[in-house]
Nucleic acid binder design. Structure first.
Length: 602
DNA sequence: CTAGGGTTAG
């Protein structure tokens, strides 16, 4: 019988893939491959032909989607005799590269339980890698235990995978400890181990430490490859250190390490963040001259950067270029557009793009739904936001911490702080824990909703938790306390910041100055401004806030003095300040001196 | 069989 075997429908496997992991680990092992029959057509010589075909497809990167890969696996599983582990690992590698980690794990299980293949180091390494990618590092370590029990010796790769798992989880300190331990146990670190560590350090923002590891590997005569360099360059760019990234790029060239598409993409992202479009253009040119074609991922960075600058027309022309280059816009592309329309309160356009992408067969993801929910909340249309939340649920998406935070912020903005509070305190029932950003949004809502004492309690609770509180949290609270007019409390909090190990930044100073001005304590505000000059230079906003305070109290001479200082420093008068000057002028028409500062000649 | 690039909350 040629088609006697039952194949799992593609939709079913997709559905399983989307459901929650712990459940998956138990159910998927037997559900993906249901065939028990042997396909006669795929035995003997046909089978050999097929395996040659399969190897070629895998090695040439021709297996581009999950369904194809699964199909290949199923055909292999039906062969008699069963293909070698080597052939299976080749295909598993493809599935891992397609990021179908849960499936890969269940396929290995199937190999052991149904196909009679003995567990070996390589397949267990694959399992460990997948578990680590799924942030299930403790399961990864238990597979290591299994290896020992089976009498299998872990390899450098096994341990490197676990180090990567620790990094993926954000536990880089432990990763470094494990690497040191590895060396002591006689497992020399290899290029991959260094690569994993360097990347982990960059991801947590420890780019300088990552560079030390890069140098360390050179000292030990390992030549950093394009992956290691690209990781560091990406870290530097994300820190805004584009100059340093470009230096490393030259260094790489000098050491004869060829850049690839990823290297260029990292640099392009770094330059885009600073609107350095000209340089972006010349990097793209260089890249294409070297025979590399930007892919969707590279071009999405341009689309997103234009969107972030509000330049939708340019973003759309990049999408046009994308199509010319033969790349299809994907969920990231569409979300960048949807997000910018949401920010601009153009919900009709946002929904139009959403429908366009869905009709074009591009599945929305949780980020898209969250953008739209954000947009509707901003539009003060909570009903539409809740409707989308429901739709999202119907599609099998579970709200994540970002979705919850968006909703909490949305209810706060709509003046429903109590509903927001309810969401905040009950989200854990849905398995999601507030993070520092969730707390920041809630805190702001409590402050703006005149629930100051609750805001104070929230910060106290946060201090007791293991959240790593940043200055931003205190700035929100400080702003809340200032707005309520409790200047003594505000001053006390402001002064206590250094003792909490936090560096008072320009925002904190500015909020405090604004609070002092509001209470008419202009001298104190001025003292603070003077104080800043030495250790934390005031910015445009700081001066505007202070001048607004002066103008409100009709301190015209002092206003003029500071307007002159601003002009001298190249700062500009903002909308609120302008309004106050115009107000003053409307009753004091003769004052030409202050008028000078209204529309400064450039 | 392992490592690097893109979207969402402030």
């Amino acid at each position: 019988m040629l088609h006697g075997s039952k194949r799992v429908t593609l939709n079913a496997s997709r559905f399983l893939y989307l459901s929650s992991f712990p459940c998956l680990l138990h159910t998927m092992g037997t559900s993906i491959v249901t065939s028990t029959h042997t396909d006669d057509a795929e035995t003997h010589s046909n089978g050999t032909q097929f395996l040659i075909f399969m190897r070629h497809q895998c090695r040439a990167g021709q297996v581009k989607n999950f369904d194809e890969a699964l199909d290949l696996f199923q055909r292999m599983a039906r062969m008699k005799p069963v293909p070698s582990v080597k052939d299976f690992t080749l295909l598993l590698g493809v599935i891992v590269r397609l990021r179908h980690y849960t499936t890969a794990i269940s396929l290995v299980k199937h190999m052991y339980s149904a196909l009679g293949i003995e567990p070996d180091t390589i397949t267990l390494n694959i399992v460990i890698n997948c578990l680590c990618r799924l942030k299930l590092i403790s399961f990864g370590f238990s597979v290591l235990g299994t290896m020992f029990k089976l009498g299998l010796e872990p390899t450098v790769m096994t341990l490197t995978n676990l180090i990567n798992g620790l990094c993926v989880q954000g536990n880089v300190a432990q990763a470094v400890v494990l690497a040191d331990h590895m060396e002591k146990l006689g497992y020399p670190l290899d290029v991959y181990t260094y690569g994993v560590l360097v990347n982990g350090l960059c991801k947590t923002g420890d780019t300088l430490v990552a560079i030390r590891w890069l140098r360390k590997m050179e000292e030990r005569n390992w030549k950093p490859n394009v992956v290691v360099y690209s990781s560091v360059m990406d870290g530097l760019c994300k820190d805004g250190l584009v100059y340093e990234a470009l230096n490393l790029f030259s260094e790489m060239g000098a050491k004869d390490v060829l850049p690839n598409l990823v290297t260029y993409t990292c640099l392009i992202q770094g330059l885009c963040n600073f609107g350095r479009w000209k340089e972006v253009g010349s990097l793209l040119d260089d890249m294409m001259k070297m025979g590399m074609k930007p892919d969707v991922q590279t071009l999405n960075i341009l689309v997103d950067s234009f969107c972030k600058e509000g330049k939708v027309t340019q973003a759309k022309s990049v999408i046009g270029f994308m199509i010319i280059m033969g790349e299809k816009p994907d969920v990231f592309t569409y979300n960048s557009l949807i997000h910018v329309y949401c920010l601009q309160n153009q919900m009709n356009e946002a929904m139009r793009i959403f429908n366009f992408m869905v009709n074009g067969g591009c599945l929305p993801d949780i980020a898209v739904f969250t953008s739209l929910i954000h947009g509707w909340c901003k539009n003060k249309n909570i009903n539409k936001a809740m409707y989308l939340l429901e739709e999202m649920g119907k599609m099998g998406f579970v709200p994540d911490v970002v979705t919850w935070t968006t909703l909490i912020g949305g209810f706060c903005q709509a003046g429903q702080s109590l509903v927001a509070k309810d969401l905040f305190f009950n989200m854990h029932k849905h398995g999601k824990v507030p993070n520092i950003q969730t707390c920041a949004v809630m805190l702001d809502g409590l402050c703006k909703g005149n629930l100051l004492s609750e805001a104070v309690s929230l910060v106290e609770a946060m201090e007791k938790s293991n959240l790593d509180l940043n200055i931003f949290i205190y700035i929100i609270l400080l702003d809340g306390i200032c707005s309520s007019g409790k200047l003594n409390d505000a001053w006390e909090l402001f002064s206590s910041l250094p003792a909490k190990g936090l560096q008072i930044d320009v925002y904190a100073y500015t909020i405090m100055i604004k609070g002092l001005c509001k209470q008419g304590l202009l001298d104190k505000a001025e003292d603070l401004l003077m104080n800043m000059e030495e250790n934390c230079p005031p910015n445009n906003c700081t001066y505007n806030v202070f001048v607004q305070g002066l103008l409100t109290k009709k301190e015209i001479a002092r206003s003029i003095k500071y307007l002159a200082i601003m002009k001298d420093k190249g700062f500009s008068v903002d909308a609120a300040t302008t309004k106050l000057i115009i107000n003053y002028l409307s009753t004091n028409k003769g004052d030409t001196e202050i008028q000078e500062y209204l529309f400064p000649k450039r």
